[in-house]
Design a protein around this nucleic acid. Structure first.
Lengths: 198, 198
DNA sequence: TACCCTACCTAACGTTCGTTAGGTAGGCAA
DNA sequence: TTGCCTACCTAACGAACGTTAGGTAGGGTA
């Protein structure tokens, strides 16, 4: 059994990815140096190259994992609320996206915050994966609109992007130690579905 | 009259700030080098120090201008719709914030996109200015809630942050060449005020 | 016991970074 | 005409950057 390689918590490659995602989230990709990352995980900068071919490669894997986490969360919300009321389906998916952002490691949060300024060569690789995730949301909303649950006049792509913007930006201010994610998901969904007017 | 100093468009300090804000927006603060900026404005990197004490100083001024633009936009919306219907007041302020983001230079867009990863010493200077702007929104929404126009159950700070997230994130995807800002402001306001449900 | 592979290390490479010191052309004022 | 001020320039500094080559300890396998 592997005893010395994984004594406490994780080590090696996954540990590096975890800390890197957290650092990229806080200081940005270009604002984080490999020596800073190496210090955090307790090794030397050159040693990182045993696990990754380049800094861009490291970022690519983080962005990829961020999408994987979102997709998995979407899967679970889909299977558990496939035939629920429209507003409940939305809430489940909102809750799932927030779970990806806050409850499943720093990958999704790092993704939504660093993707925009990532090097073009990295973005090229990740864009199709992002598109696939966004397409699932668009398709869900499109069907709800076709079924008459969503107003026929609204642009499904616009309301999705507005909703995404609201959820993703919460990484900047929502504190899981002070707020409750279930209640937050309910609040966001209520605002999305019914608005704030009395 | 100053002829040779401002022949075509702007030059000097304002030109530098304009181009820097645009570069920071695209590649991030740490992702933009002073040589890259100097190339863009047609001078040498060292010459930038005639106008700015440091790169951080340049960023500080850009973030400051970003808030100034927002405040000015808020002022105009306030004086022109002080006694209008609640939903129209909101729409005017949404339109004003979008105007700050898209129609008054790159400062506000650069602000909302680079503030999070800015050096701590820079953030410290800018935070009070941000707070002042956000307080005006909070106060406006709080009054609308006190007047019964907004549901008494919602948290005014949460709906403000959700709305801000949605508006600010649009910098990432909204294209002023393809979309109309008036219509976009109306759509965002309708979604905020009444929701998307049929 | 001998060997090998994993997971690092040391030490350095060349490049780029923000920044600075000192120089200079050209317009303006006296 | 002289002198000054503005707005740059050239050239370089030391530090930090991503990256690489070669070495090594230590557990696992034969």
């Amino acid at each position: 059994m592997p005893q010395s390689t994984t004594v406490l918590a994780e080590s090696g490659r996954d540990r590096i990815l975890d800390e890197a995602a957290a650092l990229f989230l806080r200081h940005g990709y270009e604002g984080t140096s490999l020596r800073q990352l190496a210090d955090t995980v307790g090794m030397k900068a050159g040693s990182l190259y045993y696990h990754f071919a380049s800094k861009d490669d490291l970022l690519t894997e983080i962005l990829r994992r961020g999408i994987d986490v979102m997709q998995t969360a979407f899967d679970e919300a889909e299977t558990s609320t496939g035939s629920a009321r429209p507003v409940d389906r939305i809430e489940a998916h909102v809750r799932a996206h927030l779970s990806a952002l806050f409850e499943n490691g720093p990958y999704t949060a790092a993704h939504v915050m660093t993707f925009r300024t990532a090097p073009e060569s990295v973005r090229e690789i990740v864009v199709p994966l992002r598109d696939a995730y966004e397409a699932r949301w668009t398709e869900m909303l499109r069907r709800l609109q076709a079924d008459g649950a969503i107003q026929p006049t609204v642009d499904v792509n616009v309301i999705r992007l507005v909703l995404f913007g609201a959820m993703n930006a919460s990484v900047e201010w929502f504190d899981t130690d002070r707020g409750n994610l279930d209640r937050f998901a309910a609040a966001i969904t209520a605002q999305f579905w019914s608005g704030v007017a009395s």
